[in-house]
Nucleic acid binder design. Structure first.
Lengths: 212, 212
DNA sequence: AATTGTGAAATTGTTCACAGCA
DNA sequence: TGCTGTGAACAATTTCACAATT
């Protein structure tokens, strides 16, 4: 069984977004070259990525936009919806609750958690905020499949452990720490400070960097 | 001149954070093994990454925590401060303005921009919000070196073009589109929906994925 | 004895180049 | 003819293994 690298998965997400755009503009067929251009990749890269999952194109012609879009949606798990909970209704958490892209793609924010009594048992943008003490119970009851962590760094690991103990296998972590989980659990981390550090590195070390 | 890969830069950020933690706990010396453990890497990886920038350790002993931390800070450009502006004071933008990590590391949010008259010429969390019409002028006047884009997808490229035209060489993009810039400008993109899609992919394709 | 620093080997990821097909 | 699909070549990255050093 071929293993898929995470750069391939990332690019699938990009292709999916491109395809939505091409579809909106009325394209019926596109070539790997077209797809590559919008994402600044090589056509070979596009074809190789897609080839891991099947033969979606027609030689001499290209790929049917709508069908390819559907196929990628299926591969990425976007043809179903997911029950998502978020822990930490602070600045970042709050922004994520309102983030339209999530809803659009079937990620349904079902529950919020916080440890601040002023927030607990109120509704935040239409979603109930629960006491993090009841995290495990609520996650199970509501069949939550993904948890977004938007808690302070010092609390992240502790909350992650609770989340894992509740049987959730997917965590999206916004706390600026590396969190540890058993290997059947997948964690993705978004560290915004790290991204700025990358930019700062590039300015300080102009021309000293690979690619761009 | 050895070129540095962007995974190496990312790991330097991680080492930096680890070192702050080790320092706080009173460690004076650490080994590549110690550093590797907290970030779930191999000791060889740590040594190789550091070796690109010099010989920071002592054979038989390890690395001096404080000095290594300072050296990495220098490499990442964290020993100076940066003038940062943010465009798009919506949900995401607003959260970023309050994001403590930025200030901590010398990224000073100097200016905000929006195109909503209700927000313009007011102060948002102590920072003035300007009309995006005056973007170019204000960026130059205030010697802004990095711009954070937190605008809707459809506006991102247009704003990016303005930013580039104002001479800014670093952009951190939160809009869910790929933006195009000349090659002397560095863009980093944070696409939160893409991260959830990755998690969804992993659930749908259990065990079909490399590493984790 | 312990740990760094680093060439060499192994692995992983990308691009090439062309056969195969519409 | 044009474009996909893919094995083979190539490039980049990671890991190994060991000499060098304290």
């Amino acid at each position: 069984m071929t293993k898929i690298s995470d750069s391939t998965v990332k690019r699938l997400s990009m292709y999916y977004r491109s395809l939505l755009e091409f579809e909106k503009r009325g394209y019926k067929i596109i070539s790997s070259k077209d797809l590559a251009k919008t994402e600044e990749l090589t056509p070979a890269q596009v074809r190789k990525d897609l080839s891991f999952f099947g033969n979606f194109g027609t030689r001499g012609l290209g790929y049917p936009v709508e069908e390819l879009k559907e196929r990628i949606a299926k591969i990425l798990g976007l043809t179903r919806s997911w029950n998502v909970a978020l822990v930490g209704v602070g600045n970042v958490g709050s922004a994520l609750v309102s983030y339209k892209e999530f809803q659009k793609q079937g990620f349904n924010m079902k529950l919020l958690f916080d440890n601040d009594q002023r927030k607990i048992n109120k509704s935040h943008k239409g979603i109930p905020v629960h006491d993090v003490t009841f995290l495990s119970k609520k996650l199970k009851e509501n069949k939550i499949e993904m948890v977004i962590l938007a808690v302070p760094a010092h609390a992240a690991q502790k909350v992650a452990d609770l989340v894992v103990a509740s049987g959730v296998k997917s965590i999206l972590n916004f706390a600026p720490v590396q969190i540890k989980v058993p290997k059947d659990v997948v964690v993705r981390s978004v560290n915004m400070a790290m991204e700025l550090e990358y930019l700062s590195f590039c300015q300080v070390n102009k021309g000293f960097l690979q690619s761009s």
